[in-house]
């Protein structure tokens, strides 16, 4: 009875810790976006719709990050983490298909070549995807070790 109470208390503590951690991380990411958005505005303000697109991207990224943090120490954490990385890759592919942004204003046409940025961003996203998959494999291996009785010695 006491042990069950203790276990329930531990679950509540664990869940509340995850919620606080997820909230803090989300606030931090949004704060970074909030500070960077005015810096990006002079350049991206020339391209209609891109700031709204970046805002939507940040919102979806934060949602996936919260879900990943809330499901920590479960296999779903890695699902959401992988989904987040795939979302970044998809966003980059859709928004910068050939690495250039072109816009027209009255008689002027502006072309911004972001190929190098695009290449680095895609490479980092692929590294992130590889990291998420490796983490998921590692998690499943540890699970298998625990269930097969080959678990490593617990700390005293």
């Amino acid at each position: 009875m006491v042990e069950e109470k203790k276990k329930r208390k531990n679950i509540i503590k664990d869940v509340s810790f995850r919620v606080v951690k997820a909230a803090l991380k989300a606030i931090l990411v949004y704060l970074i976006y909030f500070l960077l958005a005015p810096m990006l505005a002079p350049l991206f303000g020339l391209i209609p719709g891109i700031m709204q697109s970046i805002e939507a991207f940040v919102v979806i990224y934060i949602v996936l990050m919260i879900l990943s943090d809330l499901t920590e120490r479960t296999v779903f954490q890695y699902f959401f983490s992988t989904a987040r990385t795939l979302f970044i890759i998809a966003y980059l592919l859709l928004s910068l298909s050939d690495g250039t942004i072109s816009t027209s204003y009255e008689n002027f046409s502006l072309t911004l070549n972001l190929t190098l940025f695009y290449t680095i961003a895609i490479s980092l996203s692929l590294l992130g995807l590889a990291s998420s998959i490796l983490q998921a494999i590692n998690f499943m291996c540890e699970r298998a070790e625990v269930s097969s009785g080959l678990q490593p010695p617990q700390k005293a």
């Binding site: 502006l110 072309t111 911004l112």
Partner: peptide, 11 residues
């Protein structure tokens, strides 16, 4: 250094 940009117009 690494962001090439081009602006063009006809008048």
């Amino acid at each position: 250094e690494l962001l090439p940009a081009q602006i063009s117009t006809n008048f």
